[in-house]
Structures are given as structure tokens and as C-alpha cells.
Amino acid sequence: MSKQERRKAILIFAVIALVFMVGAILTGAGPEKETIQEVMRDAVLHDINKVSLFGLEVNPGLLAGVIVSGIMIVFALICRIFVIPKFTMVPGKFQLVLETAVGIFVNMAKGNSKINRFLGAYIFAAGAYIFTGTLFELFGVQAVTINGVSISLPAPLSDINGAIMMGCLSYLVIVSGGIAGNGIRGIGKALKEYSLPISLSFRLFGALLSGALVTELVYHYSSLSYVLPVLVGVLFTLLHALIQAYVLTMLTSLFYGQVSDNTPKPLKDKNADGTGRKITRLKLRRLPKLQHHN
């Protein structure tokens, strides 16, 4: 492409963008159906906009979860049928992506616990679900509520019920690790961390909800709808998709490793003669002598 042709293409692109912008300003936002307060309240509570799922009135997050799961299962099926049988010892680009994705979670599980077969599979699924689910809100898939209003589907885990499910399930997995590693004693160890299900759930819910709220806020005002969504919509979403997937999987595997660890505690420090007196006491006794001597 010559310099003149390139200049012409840029000019055409700028004119088209300008036409769209003028059109957007002239047509206006249309009659306001919901105020920003209502939108944000609904994003938190989901008490207005419900969608129908097989006849059940559910939050849009659940529908988003089902769609995300469907997409992921189809993707996994395609990989299983067409890609995995053609795996080679020297991996290609796509094989490398798949192996890296699996390898990260396998290594994370191995690094945190000796009993890691189930943990690796769980954190892989959880990480993939959180990451894909969070990216899903980028596509703005539309759904119609039972009131006939069109909404864009949020991330599945920005729904409190989804986040509670993920947090509690992760806690159950941690408890199962305690049982696998230490039997009944493991349950006790896991129950010591009784605040975990709440912290895991609400951390996930808070993080994803805050992303959703900021996005809603930006998209609600047309004056904020130029350029800014590129940063807010894409970069922030990508960033917190990665961060949340990493945080939940890391915390789960850390606590799983902690409660499933069955190595015996080290014995108390004893003197060489086995009298049981602590070394710290000896040090305390000797220190003044040394000071006096000096």
C-alpha cells in the first residue's frame, strides 16, 4: 500500500467513525427506563430484572453461567476430538496454550499439596470458569427479562448466588483435602478456617460486582461512552478476570495444602541431655553473664 492510499484509507475510516458519533449524538439515548441508582441496585440485588431459565425465574448471572458452561464444554469437546489426538512431542502454538493452561494448575496443586490429583482438576475448572465467565461480560450477550426488557448478561460470578456457590464449593474441597490427608482430624483443621467460605464468596462477589458496577456506570452516561470503555471494558475486565481466577485458585490450593498436610509437628527444642529445658531459657541465663564479663 502506497503512502497516498494509506492516507486515503485513514481518512475514510475517520469519516465513518465521525458519522457514527454524530448519529449517536443526534439519536440520543432514548427515553430513560431506569435510573443509574436502579441499575446499580439491580446489579447488586438482582431483584428487578429476572430472566427465565427452563421456566424458572432466575438472576441473569445464572443464565450467563449456563451459557458460559455450554461454550466451555463445546470448546473442550472440539479440543478433545480434533486437537488432543494430534498432540505432538514438540508442541505447536495451540497445543502449547492448552498445555500451559493445564500445567499452571497442575503445578499450583503440586506446589501446595502432596495430595493433589483432585485439587488440580478442581482449580483448573474453577480458574477456567472464573476467567471465561468474567470475560463473557465483555461480549454483551443480550437477554430479555421476564418484564420484556433487554439486558446484557453479566459475569456469572457477579451474581451473589454464583459467588456463594464458588466460595462454599471451594471450602468443601478444602475440607475434603483435610479428610484425605488427616482423616477426622483434617475436618477439625478445616473447620478452624470457618470464615473461609464467607471470605472466598464475598471476595469473588465484591471483585466481580465492582467491575460490573464500574462498567454499568460508564455505559450509563453517553458522555463517558467514547474511548473510556476501551480501557474500562476491555483492560479492567481482562485484568480482574486474571486476578480473580488466580486469587481463588491460589487460596483454595494454599488452604487445601495446609489442611491436608500430615507431616508430624517438630518436637520442642531440648538440651542435648534430654532434660526438656528450652534452649531459650539457657540463652536468657547466659546473657547477663556475658554482659557482666564484657
Binding site: M72, L77, I84, G120, A121, F124, A125
Partner: peptide, 8 residues
């Protein structure tokens, strides 16, 4: 599904 189709 992910365990059977992809992870394992």
C-alpha cells in the same frame, strides 16, 4: 466435562 475432555 472439563476433567474428562480437557484436563485429564
Amino acid at each position: 466435562a472439563l476433567y474428562i475432555l480437557l484436563y485429564k
